[in-house]
Computed example of a mutant assay.
Amino acid sequence: MSAKDKFDQIMQEATQVSIATLTVDGKAPDVRIVLFVYLPTTHQLLFMTGTNAPKVAQIAAHSAAAFTTQAVGNQNFARAKQAKVQKVTPTEAMKKAYSDKFPATAAYAAHSDFFTVDFDSVAVTADNQTETITF
């Protein structure tokens, strides 16, 4: 299986991602775990959070981010160090992808902000080997 195939499998199986951004004052990293969907056509992660959550202000102040998925299968995960997170108005396709993966969260979507995480490369660790994929 290629590194790209392993990446796709991880992104389909993982449900949570840890995203690190800077605090509003820019003095410290802050990590949060969120539910996410991978959008393969744009190579983005999509997540939502409450409009008043502290991470909304942090992201507005600093868009630089890093992330790692939860481990799946045989401790396989994906990690990006140079990512950018931004608030988006989700398309119907984005909302559908999110609600298809997490049907119980549909009721929260109307009261939440959506964000995408953009990245150009990702380190994929699978079967005790790490390979970098560039998009």
Results as ranks from 00 to 15, higher is better:
residue 1 M to S: 15
residue 4 K to G: 02
residue 4 K to E: 14
residue 9 Q to F: 02
residue 10 I to F: 00
residue 11 M to H: 05
residue 12 Q to I: 06
residue 12 Q to A: 06
residue 14 A to M: 04
residue 15 T to Y: 15
residue 17 V to T: 07
residue 17 V to H: 01
residue 20 A to W: 00
residue 22 L to Y: 10
residue 24 V to K: 15
residue 25 D to Q: 11
residue 27 K to I: 03
residue 28 A to I: 01
residue 32 R to H: 13
residue 36 F to A: 05
residue 36 F to L: 02
residue 37 V to I: 04
residue 38 Y to L: 05
residue 39 L to E: 05
residue 39 L to H: 01
residue 40 P to N: 05
residue 40 P to L: 08
residue 43 H to V: 10
residue 44 Q to I: 07
residue 44 Q to C: 01
residue 45 L to R: 06
residue 45 L to I: 06
residue 46 L to V: 07
residue 48 M to H: 09
residue 51 T to P: 05
residue 51 T to I: 12
residue 52 N to W: 02
residue 53 A to H: 14
residue 55 K to V: 03
residue 56 V to L: 00
residue 60 A to D: 14
residue 64 A to Y: 09
residue 65 A to W: 00
residue 68 T to S: 05
residue 69 T to K: 03
residue 71 A to D: 09
residue 72 V to Q: 02
residue 74 N to T: 07
residue 74 N to P: 04
residue 75 Q to P: 05
residue 78 A to K: 09
residue 79 R to G: 09
residue 80 A to T: 14
residue 82 Q to M: 07
residue 83 A to D: 09
residue 86 Q to D: 13
residue 87 K to D: 12
residue 91 T to S: 15
residue 92 E to P: 04
residue 93 A to D: 08
residue 93 A to N: 14
residue 96 K to L: 06
residue 98 Y to I: 00
residue 100 D to P: 01
residue 101 K to W: 01
residue 101 K to Y: 04
residue 102 F to T: 03
residue 103 P to F: 11
residue 104 A to M: 11
residue 110 A to N: 13
residue 111 H to D: 15
residue 112 S to P: 03
residue 113 D to A: 10
residue 113 D to I: 01
residue 113 D to M: 04
residue 114 F to T: 05
residue 115 F to L: 04
residue 115 F to R: 14
residue 116 T to C: 01
residue 117 V to W: 03
residue 118 D to I: 10
residue 119 F to P: 01
residue 121 S to N: 14
residue 124 V to R: 15
residue 124 V to H: 14
residue 126 A to E: 05
residue 126 A to D: 05
residue 128 N to F: 10
residue 128 N to C: 11
residue 128 N to V: 09
residue 130 T to Q: 11
residue 131 E to Q: 13
residue 132 T to K: 11
residue 134 T to R: 11
residue 134 T to Y: 10
residue 134 T to P: 03
residue 134 T to D: 13
residue 135 F to E: 13
residue 135 F to D: 08
